[in-house]
Every structure is written in structure tokens, then in C-alpha cells.
Design a protein around this nucleic acid. Structure first.
Length: 449
RNA sequence: GCCGAUUUAGCUUAGCUGGUGGAGCGUGGGACUGUUAAUCCCAAGGUCGAGGGUUCGAACCCCUCAAUCGGCGCCA
């Protein structure tokens, strides 16, 4: 039963003139009543199979003629290099077996027309129509979505490799929590045996608890935010790669932020060049993201640049997406923004001991309008300081008691960051929307299928 | 939380100032021995998102509701 021959390898020329057995799904079907051309799809590619009536006999040929798109089949035949076939190879069929048929009363609903549906501005958002989102379980089989899922896999693998090579320990935090990391209004409430729990927004508080044990730790896990954001960059459930590191400064943490993103870009180029090309992605661009250093800019400098462009922005404001976009449109690689005003950031960000109106933090902004992909920095680590900042913000102490307690036993300077994995994949893949890079996107208006 | 838009066959859509809803794809039937999401002929398939109103008459005008999409704020 195990499949040993892959269409990608056949198209690469590994089986020329040999008889092979190909397992897959029918992507396209056409021809006459004497010969049929079946385009067979598997996870590695497509190949045209030539089915002649003379070779198969009347009865079997009728079956082939009536076969519908997405029927699963096993086709045996001889591989023939032929430039008339897409990809340069075709299979001259000698046997044909249907494994899973398709009911003609409910044929595969996704066709060319549904894939090219336009919005009111005449723009195609791939997979963005109500119909395709409702049929997401079938949309996964399209070539664009398959490419996205392969890129996603490479990104996850690259993140694990990067941190493990840098001697980080993988560590898991709970998903049911009682305290917020970001603003409290974006928590998902979960009934919890008569109490209220929340889905986690970040592993950070629990990672900091393990920092004195492991010193360098990381995770890739889902985070949940009940933001009603209707944008191309937001999911309510997204995959969060986070790291925490003892004895590290903001600058030293940024080295790893830059390192992991560049490693993801490099890995995609090495593992998924074909998929990037099929998505019309410029490989030189990805190579630049992999090879170039990422410049660092202080918040104050960014505000000056924006003011120089006539943007209405005052010192102390957090930079929203519209301002990020103006700032990053001149960038050809990601840029770090550091030293935000204290008033724009929550209590766990460490105040800059040199100038107490700033915090020692950083955001990494991706170019091409993709926005923020990393947020991180040094943490407030002394007990007195964290209590002072919690009270200053008016945040209740009670849900954070365990977190405060960790500061009472040998606190050390430390910090970390969170990286939006889906956002990184979306940016590197050149996706039109973040939902293009996750199989079943969860947004404020959609939890199905 | 705010703003904008959409909803007509399984899908994509046309439908003018209100007067019996057309097409392409797909499906079913037929033709075709090298097709490139083939081509040609035929057929079936619609309470026009739901409810109410105006009118002799509503897919079209008005109201309410629903679902979805796009954008803003916030963030990864």
C-alpha cells in the first residue's frame, strides 16, 4: 500500500521509459472517444496520463471517460518524455483503477470560475470568496493552497532548527490562563468548572517563570486574541513562535529575532524554490531578506522621519499600521524599531535605566506592507520595579501573583520576543491575506469549517 | 467599537427609467485518435438571502433582519 513513486520525481526524469504505478487524484480530464488525457495530481505535482482505448479495452475505457474531477485512482503505465505534455513527461497508461469515486450529483464544486471571483473593486483575493471559505476543506487541494502549506511547513521547521542550534530548550506553557498579556479586552473567555478562564494570548508570563531553570527557551504554539480586527494581517487563533532568554539585553535579543527570520527566509529558498516560483515570488527578494542585515532605528527617529513626510504623529503615540506602512514603504529589508515611549507599552517592558521615558523594547517591521512580525524586549525584572509599574498602570496584582513572585527569588536581567509565524509566512510567500497561509483560518466572523 | 459593500442555478455572473429572469463553467446525453482548466451539438437545473411594505404589477423602490466580504482602530 505504501506509495513509493511520486509525480514530482517522474517529472524530474527519474523513471523515464520505465513502467510505474502512480497513485493520486484526477485534476483534469479531456479527450475524444478513442483516447483521454487525464491530468493526475499528487502532493508533489501533476502529470498528464494518456489513456488509449486500444490499450485498455472498451469496458475500462468507458470508466475512464466517465471519471470525475478529484476521483482517486491508481494508474499504471510507461513514463514517456514528451514536450507536448505539461512538465515534459507523460504516462502512457496500461492499467487504470478507481479507488474513491465522485458522486455525479455532487461533483467537485471548486472550478476555475470560483477561483477567479472578484471583489467589488475587481481584485482577486485568492480563496477569499464566501464560497471558497465555506469549502475550505476542499480548497486545500488547490495548487496555490498546497504551495502555501509547504512554505508554512518549512517555516516551522526552520524556527525549530534555529533555536535548537542556538541551544534553546523547547518549553510548553498552558493554554488556559487567568491573566492577560496584552490588553484585557482581547481575551477569549472559557467556562472553567464554574469559574472563568481565558485562552492564552502569549506564553510569555509562563516562560519567564521557567527562565531561571532553562535560561534559553522557546516555543511554537497557538495564541488567541479576541480582536475584532478585520485586516489582512489578523487571525483570532495564530501561531506564535516565542523565545525567552536570561542574561540578555534588548540588543542581544534582537540578534536572535533577526537570526530566526533570516533563517526562515534562507530555508524557504533552499527547500521550496519551486513553490516560491509557482507563486510568482521574486527569489532575489527572498535572498535579500535572508542575507542582508536588518537595520535598527529608535522610535524617536521614526517619528522624525514621519513628521518630515508631513504625517500627523506626536511623540508618545504608538505607531499604528497606517504610519508603519508609510515608514516601511522605503525599506527593502525588515527594520527594527526600538525604545518606544513607556506610556505606549504595558508594565512588563523594562524601563530604560538611562532615560526613564523609554522602554527597552523592539518591533520588527516587514517590508512590502506586511507590518509588524516581531514584538519583544527586556522584561521588568526587579520586584520593586514590577510592583511600581503594575500599580502605576492600575493593573490588578492578583492574577499576576505567580509572575511577581518569580522576581523575589534571584531575578536577573532577561527578555524575549514573540514572532507571528503566519505573518512571516504570509510576507515571504507574498500572500494577499494571512488566511492564505493557514489551513482553517479563524477570524472574528468565521470559525467554520 | 466604527465605516463601506455584497447576496440572482452547484459555481461565476448579465439583468436599463418597475412590465413573464439570460449566459458561461460544471452535470447528463451525443460527436471527435494529441488534448493543454480542448472543441462542437442537445438537455435538465431559479419560491432572485429572509420577512414586511409601496404598486394593477417588484430581482429592481422603501423598511427590518441575517450571512459574508473589504477597510480602520488594536496587535504577532
Amino acid at each position: 500500500m505504501v506509495k513509493t513513486i511520486w509525480i514530482g520525481d517522474v517529472q524530474a526524469g527519474k523513471y523515464d521509459d520505465q513502467e510505474v504505478e502512480l497513485k493520486g487524484w484526477i485534476k483534469r480530464e479531456r479527450g475524444s472517444n478513442k483516447m483521454r488525457f487525464i491530468v493526475l495530481r499528487d502532493s508533489t505535482g501533476n502529470i498528464q496520463c494518456v489513456v488509449k482505448k486500444d490499450a485498455l479495452g472498451e469496458e475500462l475505457f468507458q470508466e475512464v471517460k466517465n471519471v470525475l474531477i478529484e476521483t482517486s485512482v491508481i494508474i499504471t503505465g510507461v513514463v514517456n518524455a514528451d514536450e507536448r505534455a505539461d512538465g515534459g513527461h507523460e504516462l502512457i497508461a496500461t492499467a487504470f483503477e478507481i479507488i474513491g469515486p465522485v458522486n455525479p450529483e455532487r461533483p467537485f464544486p471548486i472550478n476555475k470560475e470560483s477561483l477567479e471571483a472578484e471583489d467589488e473593486d475587481g481584485e482577486i483575493m485568492p480563496g477569499g470568496s464566501e464560497f471558497l471559505l465555506d469549502n475550505r476543506h476542499l480548497y486545500l487541494r488547490t495548487s496555490r493552497m498546497t504551495s502555501m502549506l509547504k512554505l508554512r511547513s518549512s517555516a516551522f521547521g526552520a524556527i525549530h532548527n534555529y533555536f535548537r542550534n542556538e541551544d534553546f530548550i523547547e518549553y510548553q506553557a498552558p493554554n488556559f490562563v487567568t491573566g492577560a498579556v496584552e490588553g484585557g479586552s482581547t481575551l477569549f473567555e472559557v467556562p472553567y468548572f464554574g469559574r472563568t478562564a481565558y485562552l492564552t494570548q502569549s506564553w510569555q508570563l509562563y516562560a519567564e517563570a521557567a527562565m531561571p531553570a532553562l535560561e534559553r527557551l522557546y516555543t511554537i504554539a497557538p495564541s488567541f486574541r479576541a480582536e475584532k480586527s478585520r485586516t489582512r494581517r489578523h487571525l483570532t487563533e495564530f501561531w506564535h513562535a516565542e523565545m525567552e532568554m536570561a542574561w540578555a539585553t534588548n540588543d542581544e535579543i534582537m540578534i536572535h529575532g533577526e537570526g530566526v527570520v533570516r533563517h526562515v527566509a534562507r530555508t524557504m529558498l533552499e527547500e521550496q524554490e519551486q513553490e516560491l516560483v509557482s507563486l510568482d515570488r521574486d527569489l532575489d527578494l527572498i535572498a535579500r531578506y535572508a542575507d542582508s542585515p536588518y537595520p535598527r532605528m529608535r522610535y524617536d527617529e521614526a517619528v522624525e522621519i514621519l513628521q518630515g513626510k508631513g504625517v500627523d504623529v506626536e511623540w508618545g503615540q504608538d505607531l499604528d499600521y497606517s504610519k508603519e506602512k508609510i515608514l516601511t514603504q522605503d525599506f527593502d529589508v525588515p527594520h527594527f524599531l526600538t525604545h518606544y515611549p513607556k506610556i505606549a507599552k504595558p508594565f512588563y517592558h523594562r524601563v530604560d535605566p538611562d532615560e526613564d521615558k523609554y522602554v527597552l523594547c523592539h518591533d520588527l517591521l516587514a517590508p512590502e506592507g506586511y507590518g509588524e512580525i516581531i514584538g519583544g524586549g527586556e522584561r521588568t525584572w526587579s520586584e520593586e520595579e514590577i510592583l511600581a509599574r503594575i500599580d502605576e498602570e492600575g493593573t490588578p496584582r492578583e492574577p499576576y501573583q505567580f509572575y511577581i513572585d518569580t522576581r523575589s527569588y534571584g531575578g536577573v536581567p532577561h527578555g524575549g520576543f514573540g514572532l507571528g509565524v503566519d505573518r512571516v509566512v504570509s510576507w515571504l510567500a507574498g500572500a494577499t491575506h494571512i488566511r492564505e497561509v493557514i489551513p482553517f483560518p479563524r477570524t472574528s466572523r468565521r470559525v467554520t469549517p
